[in-house]
Design a binder for these strands. Structure first.
Lengths: 225, 225
DNA sequence: CTCTATAATCTGTCTAACAGATTTAAGGCG
DNA sequence: CGCCTTAAATCTGTTAGACAGATTATAGAG
């Protein structure tokens, strides 16, 4: 804790309230004015804390009605607490394996021409990043995200963002995966992605799903041989 | 677009400033007062946006000095926000079909005794709610969520929460399934859930996956015949 | 008992102010 | 000219009070 903002403390105290009082998903929190009174701070501070709680997906505010529990913090915290960063990253592969393989299959089936262009553009961005030997983590994610979007089903993007949003947070916390990659690995990664894009372009559902599964399988191995 | 908080807009505009002006990591943002003047809002609103930016690891505030860029916002992160407002009732089934079927399979494979108890408890809650003819939507979700948790892989819960986070909102908007639920449908829903739980208890991966797929398939049909 | 109008709450937002930390500018001295 | 000390300007962190608009609770009429 470098800084001592009151809203940090209020954030933690509201989390405690939800956990201690066992507030279920959908339950209403005390009003901002009430919380301010309880913690002895101004309403503005409570609002700052609530903004972060909402940003973290724990609460949700409805105008005129109140703030409500959206996802119990104990569960959200549990996914960071027990295991270290790497296992969580690895765990996401298990989900990506089914989620993104299905996305690739559906993208191949019903992508529009515009969505295809968007995917191809993402592929170009990844290629440029990889060939310039820069950290290509963002571009990698972006391509995968565009493929999820090419299904035309926003639910895939919802799940994708949830998965990679928190992974991104974890990596910002100090884990540096972008270690030095030898040239042959770069070429391999490029080829794997290209096979996925080619299959989607050719409207080959099974090929796209298989290429995605293979790529994720290999990616997981690269992370933890 | 359920809510239009000014701080949401300010958040996006500050991200735009960082990207457009090419502010490097460590660069100082305009002061809160200046930002408030630029966007035509009060300083409190700017602070609420800055709290979320700080929570997302993009900026960092130093007391008396100013707010500084901590990490350049990626394009992916910028697109992260608007996706939260998409209603995805039917589309979510397409994702649940692969996601929860895999969760059921893995839960059957490696559930602990404690996780099994947690699932059984969820089943009891659902049974009680359904038999009392009360809206059982929350209990239904809770059982599915506990099954996702029984995989031991928190990534499944991440994806699950993302998909079902807005369901409460949708239900409140008027789609009330519980009203039009004849007794035979209740019995059917109960049986479908029981088959899933039984398969997980019996550590039958394929049976669990199949039962989940069947249940979701029927559920989708009940929603939109 | 149901429907409706009214009152009470609650979020979203603004303005004005002050303390304390930090940066900047101004001198003063070698 | 360059360096150090000091005072002024700036900035974040925080408080108080106010008002509009949305939502929920309440009381009353039929």
């Amino acid at each position: 804790m470098s800084q001592t903002r009151l809203s940090d403390h209020v954030y933690a105290q509201i989390v405690d309230i939800i956990k201690a009082d066992g507030l279920a998903v959908g339950a209403r929190l005390p009003s901002e004015a009430r919380l301010a009174e309880m913690f002895g701070v101004s309403r503005a501070i409570v609002r700052e804390a609530l903004m972060r709680l909402a940003s973290d997906g724990i609460t949700e505010a409805r105008r005129g009605a109140g703030s409500f529990v959206k996802s119990r913090p104990s569960d959200r915290l549990a996914k960071f607490m027990p295991s270290t960063e790497l296992p969580t990253t690895l765990g996401s592969y298990e989900v990506r394996f089914v989620l993104e393989a299905e996305a690739a299959r559906l993208a191949a089936t019903r992508r529009t021409a515009q969505e295809m262009m968007y995917v191809e553009e993402g592929m170009e961005m990844l290629r440029a990043a990889l060939l310039s030997s820069e950290p290509a983590h963002v571009e990698d994610m972006e391509l995968h995200r565009r493929i999820a979007g090419a299904t035309g089903n926003p639910a895939f993007l919802l799940a994708f963002d949830a998965l990679h949003g928190d992974v991104d947070k974890i990596m910002r916390a100090g884990v540096d995966i972008s270690r030095s990659r030898p040239p042959d690995v770069i070429a391999t990664m490029l080829r794997e992605h290209e096979q996925i894009v080619v299959a989607i372009r050719a409207q080959d559902p099974e090929g796209a799903a298989l290429a995605m599964r293979w790529h994720l399988w290999e990616g997981r191995r690269r992370l933890m041989p």
